[in-house]
Design a protein around this nucleic acid. Sequence first.
DNA 1: TCAGAAGTTTAGCATTGGCTAAACTATATG
DNA 2: CATATAGTTTAGCCAATGCTAAACTTCTGA
Lengths: 144, 144
Amino acid sequence: MTIATKKGASAKLRSAAFKRIRADHSAELAEDYVEMIADLIDERGEARCTDIAMRLGVANATVVKALKRLQTMGLVTQEPYRAIFLTTDGWKMAEDGKRKHAIVEKFLLALGVSQETARIDSEGIEHHVSIETLRAMAKFLSRG
Amino acid sequence: MTIATKKGASAKLRSAAFKRIRADHSAELAEDYVEMIADLIDERGEARCTDIAMRLGVANATVVKALKRLQTMGLVTQEPYRAIFLTTDGWKMAEDGKRKHAIVEKFLLALGVSQETARIDSEGIEHHVSIETLRAMAKFLSRG
DNA sequence: TCAGAAGTTTAGCATTGGCTAAACTATATG
DNA sequence: CATATAGTTTAGCCAATGCTAAACTTCTGA
């Protein structure tokens, strides 16, 4: 019983990391979309399906489907055949994401990797860094 | 035309990062499985469905299904109702993954994050760091 | 040896995230 | 103002990754 409990507890501990990764993955798409929508609104005043599809490198229909999920999550609003807007929650998520992204990217640059690699890797990494790691990166940056 | 081409090229560039992330994600599961199988074989002499399921925090049937994919990818071999083995490619992937994992985890520790966070974050990050970033991390570690 | 426990597999389902093709709407231009 | 083009949506497909429940095999201990 003690052994079984120990075994169970250790397995549970171990599996926690993987569970978080799976959770991260479902959140990732949402974050990438809202960040991109925020960028598009900033740059061009509006976000359109086609532009999102182009920048993400997916088909138009894929974006439409994703936007529906984002709508049910309360992150975006949209009238049929019209441009896409972010809700308050959407803006918050976009801003959080961009801040996180900026720290990770700057950190990678400070570490000595190329501009190009920093851009690409930070996109992948940003969704998997905890607050603690993010703070450690920020501290590293501020220390020079 | 020039504008269209430029627009296309920049979108293509931008979308590259996201395309890599999506590719990374499909590779991720395979890497996690083979690493875990390698660990189990090292620790206990054999890898069983149930142990993998426990450690990953998923159901048994999920593991079975995943193992079939790994088999068609040529990473593992298995007889029905018997333990799981890695192919040469599987071992190679497991070793690469473990090496990568170790660097990322040590790097995070060196950056000053807690043991626990380093363990969890490295699990998520390891699949998204390029060789270049990995080398930068290794360099940072060797410099002290 | 054989019955039950432990482990594996199959079957069937849901969701996510991709795609193409076709239908529809809005807009801009002749 | 009518129509072509650009953009959006729907419909229907596929693969991956998760689940539960039920069937099956292997192993173990009385």
